[in-house]
Computed example of a mutant assay.
Amino acid sequence: MIAPLPDLLIEPIVRASLAEDLGRAGDITALACIDAGARLTASFGARKAGTIAGLACARLAILALDPTATFETLISDGDGVEPGAVLARVEANARALLSAERTALNLLGRLSGIATLTSAYVDAVVGSGASITDTRKTTPGLRALEKYAVRCGGGVNHRFGLDDAILIKDNHVAACGGVKPAIERARAFAGHLVKVECEVDSLEQFDQALAAGPDVVMLDNFSLEDLREAVVRNAGRLVLEASGGVNLDTVAAIADTGVNVISVGALTHSAPVLDIGLDA
Rank of each mutant, 00 (worst) to 15 (best):
I183V: 15
M1S: 15
K195T: 13
K137P: 04
A61S: 14
G277W: 03
F206E: 08
L219S: 03
L74Y: 09
P67L: 03
G191L: 04
R143W: 06
E184F: 09
G141K: 01
D226N: 14
T41W: 00
H269M: 04
G129C: 10
S112C: 13
D249S: 15
A211N: 12
E146N: 12
F160G: 14
F189P: 09
A61M: 04
A280M: 10
N234R: 02
A174L: 08
G244T: 01
I28Y: 00
E229D: 11
D275Y: 04
L142A: 06
L98P: 05
P214R: 01
E199S: 11
G113C: 11
A242R: 02
A25V: 03
A36R: 07
V264D: 07
L87C: 10
D249F: 10
F206V: 05
L162Q: 09
G127K: 13
S263A: 12
A49L: 04
G155Q: 07
V156E: 13
V273M: 14
G141T: 01
N106E: 01
L240W: 02
R159A: 07
L267G: 10
K147D: 11
A85Y: 02
Y121Q: 09
A144C: 14
I168V: 03
L8G: 14
T73V: 15
V273R: 10
I52F: 07
V173K: 02
D27G: 00
A53P: 06
K180N: 08
A30F: 00
T70V: 15
D77M: 06
L274Q: 12
A94F: 09
I114Y: 13
